[in-house]
């Protein structure tokens, strides 16, 4: 890929690397970085990585648990994000959600594969939920996000919350979740859906 071709896209003045005017500091416009990545802009992809890698890797670590395998999955995820960047459609959802969907699917595939089966029994004790208490704008924003999500989770019933956490954060199928929570077969998927709908409405997220 020659650099002339790569950067000529941005010489028109249409897309300078600065962040969107309306975005708060420390929150680059991920959708825009994806679009520039799709045009081969490796610098934009580096920015995208810096902005999103802690969310992506944190989710992967939570599902996969094994540190070495998590690193591999995160690496695969970002390569996939690069490859698929032109397929991101902002009308169908946020860029972060799109990237986390790729990461989650890869993480779940990894834990469900036979090689990983024996590694997930280790307890989840090295907690990742506490964001380090530094004072950058980005970190503060993350902590506020986490607070908001915790409060939203509190509005779910115990069963909804348990089913959702086992499915999304631990990568179990709804059938496995039903068995783990002693729910009648076929009802865990309803609890997962009800919990997500509650979460969606409480957080006011839109796609």
């Amino acid at each position: 890929m020659d650099s002339m071709g790569r950067f000529s896209v941005f010489s028109s003045g249409e897309g300078q690397p600065e962040e969107n005017a309306g975005e708060p500091p420390g929150q680059p416009d991920l959708g825009r970085l994806l679009r520039r990545s799709a045009a081969g802009d490796e610098g934009a992809f580096g920015e995208l990585y810096d902005a999103a890698s802690a969310r992506v890797h944190g989710l992967v670590r939570r599902v996969v648990r094994d540190p070495a395998q998590s690193e591999e999955v995160t690496q695969e995820t970002f390569l996939e994000i690069w490859r698929q960047s032109a397929r991101f459609d902002p009308r169908r959802g946020s860029a972060l959600s799109w990237m986390l969907t790729i990461a989650h699917r890869k993480a779940v595939d990894r834990v469900r594969s036979a090689e990983a089966a024996s590694r997930r029994d280790e307890a989840w004790h090295t907690t990742t939920s506490d964001v380090p208490h530094d004072t950058t704008a980005e970190t503060v924003a993350l902590r506020l996000d986490a607070e908001r999500v915790r409060r939203a989770l509190d509005t779910l019933t115990d069963t909804q919350r348990g089913a959702l956490e086992l499915a999304y954060l631990s990568g179990y199928t709804h059938t496995e979740v039903a068995s783990m929570l002693d729910l009648p077969l076929g009802t865990a998927k309803t609890r997962i859906r009800d919990g997500l709908i509650r979460l969606r409405d409480t957080l006011g997220v839109t796609s």
């Binding site: 802690a54 969310r55 890797h57 944190g58 989710l59 670590r61 939570r62 959802g93 946020s94 972060l96 959600s97 986390l100 969907t101 989650h104 990742t128 939920s129 964001v131 993350l142 996000d145 986490a146 908001r148 999500v149 915790r150 939203a152 989770l153 959702l164 956490e165 999304y168 954060l169 997500l196 709908i197 979460l199 969606r200 957080l203 997220v205 839109t206 796609s207």
Partner: peptide, 12 residues
């Protein structure tokens, strides 16, 4: 989108 919000609990 809602599920993605859960990942803010496990930033690393």
């Amino acid at each position: 989108e809602a599920a993605a919000e859960l990942s803010s609990l496990s930033v690393q």
